[in-house]
């Protein structure tokens, strides 16, 4: 089984213009992933499926990940010259990394029995229905899972044959799996005596209405 670093140059040769990065993974599982730009992800996916050395014909898992805006603190050392004396000081720079949504695909090969290769694509921002590219034309098994990604994360996957909500009902507003989703306070509640749900419900249903 090739490592992502080995797959990367072959992919770049096969799909001209594709921007591919290998993302690190420091935990003991060590599954590194291939980050592909949405414009070329379909061609990359087709290559991964049809390449005789890889034959990744089985797309096991498709999921979304929400990465909200985050302030990244990076430290670096710099030397300053104060009154002719050189001294080293540490400076912290805070940069705002703007958030994005991500689609993660775990690919295996049923024919060659290897895997996983982790494929990722990112949206530009966290907008309502931010676009990305559907891989259902390559692997039929993505169909329901991509609908789920659309439903819960609000990533509009272009090229999906039937992109509707799947778990939530039609007409539902919002994307529940996003990190900034606020649950409504008027759902059918089961209050427990010390519950924040009860507090929420009290706000929504004033006592005089209830009586």
């Amino acid at each position: 089984m090739e490592t992502p670093e080995q797959i990367k140059p072959r992919l770049e040769a096969a799909v001209p213009g594709a921007k591919i990065d290998v993302l690190p993974n420091d935990c003991p599982a060590g599954e590194r992933s291939l980050l592909v730009d949405p414009a070329h992800v379909l061609a990359v996916a087709k290559f991964l499926r049809d390449d005789p050395q890889l034959r990744l014909d089985f797309c096991s898992n498709v999921t979304g990940v929400d990465w909200p805006d985050i302030v990244v603190k990076s430290k670096f050392k710099k030397t300053v010259v104060v009154d002719g004396v050189e001294s080293e000081i540490e400076e912290t720079i805070e940069t705002l990394r703007s958030g994005y949504l991500e689609c993660v695909y775990h690919l295996y090969s049923m024919e060659l029995k290897h895997g996983p290769v982790v494929l990722r694509q990112r949206t530009v921002n966290r907008d309502h229905e931010a676009p990305a590219v559907s891989l259902t034309p390559v692997w039929r098994g993505c169909e329901f899972q991509e609908r789920e990604v659309y439903d819960l994360y609000g990533i509009r996957l272009e090229g999906h044959p039937d992109l509707r909500r799947i778990l939530m009902w039609d007409g539902f507003k919002g994307f529940p799996m996003r990190k900034d989703y606020v649950p409504p306070d008027d759902f059918e509640y089961e209050p427990t005596p010390h519950d924040e749900v009860l507090e929420q419900a009290k706000k929504h249903y004033p006592p005089e209405v209830k009586a």
Binding site: N25, D26, C27, A29, S60, N61, V65, V104, H106, V118
Partner: peptide, 22 residues
């Protein structure tokens, strides 16, 4: 656990049951 991600799967009676954790 340390920062990172893992996908684990087993053969459950109904098929491949996987968990993906970040």
């Amino acid at each position: 656990p340390k920062a990172g991600e893992a996908y684990g799967r087993i053969e459950a009676p109904k098929g491949e049951l996987g968990f993906y954790l970040i």
